[in-house]
Computed example of a mutant assay.
Amino acid sequence: MKIKTRKDYRKRRHLRLRRKVHGTAERPRMSVFISNRAIYVQLIDDERAATLFAADSSGNGGKDADTARKIGKSCAEAALEQGIKGAVFDRGGFRFGKRMAAIADGAREAGLNI
């Protein structure tokens, strides 16, 4: 019997989520990954398989909720500069907790429709 790890379960949740979430050029996928050191956010157009914008917290130091809000806000501002008004939120199999909510709230504050 194979022992499953937390990482395996997260990957399964992410694959299940990706069946439903798909990004386009008008409404890209806002993909979030949280590691032990940083928070990473990307805007991805799945039709072209291209990353439109990427931001992380490695230079800002930390992975708390305030940093997450700043990253969500910067990602949304970059999307609005490119003429993108909305995005589909992809939490990457992680729980929608305090930091995920802060990323989404920061993007909404900047004017991105999630």
Score class of each variant (00 low, 15 high):
57 S>E: 00
38 A>Q: 12
83 G>F: 02
86 G>V: 03
100 M>H: 07
50 A>W: 05
99 R>S: 14
18 R>D: 03
33 F>M: 08
33 F>N: 06
21 V>T: 09
49 A>S: 10
51 T>D: 01
10 R>T: 12
12 R>Y: 13
44 I>Y: 05
84 I>Y: 01
76 A>W: 00
104 A>Y: 04
81 E>F: 10
38 A>T: 06
89 F>H: 07
18 R>K: 12
9 Y>V: 13
94 F>S: 15
83 G>E: 04
69 R>A: 13
99 R>Y: 08
41 V>T: 04
7 K>Q: 15
80 L>R: 09
19 R>Y: 10
21 V>R: 05
59 G>S: 15
18 R>Y: 07
16 R>D: 14
90 D>T: 01
70 K>E: 03
93 G>S: 13
82 Q>K: 15
61 G>R: 03
96 F>K: 15
60 N>I: 07
10 R>K: 15
11 K>A: 11
50 A>H: 05
38 A>F: 06
25 A>T: 11
55 A>D: 12
67 T>K: 08
106 G>L: 00
55 A>Y: 09
96 F>C: 14
73 K>W: 09
111 G>H: 07
66 D>T: 10
90 D>C: 07
11 K>C: 08
89 F>A: 11
33 F>E: 05
25 A>N: 06
91 R>Y: 07
52 L>P: 00
79 A>N: 01
85 K>M: 06
16 R>S: 15
92 G>A: 08
30 M>H: 00
102 A>E: 05
87 A>D: 04
43 L>N: 02
71 I>F: 03
67 T>H: 06
110 A>M: 12
81 E>W: 07
59 G>H: 14
90 D>M: 02
80 L>V: 01
40 Y>M: 03
110 A>G: 11
103 I>M: 04
58 S>T: 13
81 E>S: 12
87 A>T: 07
111 G>C: 10
93 G>R: 07
69 R>W: 03
71 I>M: 01
85 K>E: 13
105 D>V: 03
69 R>I: 06
87 A>V: 08
53 F>D: 14
37 R>M: 14
68 A>C: 12
87 A>R: 02
60 N>M: 14
55 A>V: 12
99 R>N: 14
13 R>F: 08
58 S>N: 11
56 D>P: 07
88 V>W: 04
69 R>D: 11
76 A>N: 02
56 D>M: 07
43 L>Q: 01
24 T>W: 00
52 L>H: 00
45 D>T: 00
28 P>N: 12
42 Q>V: 05
105 D>E: 15
98 K>M: 01
13 R>W: 10
48 R>V: 08
41 V>E: 02
21 V>K: 08
31 S>P: 10
61 G>F: 00
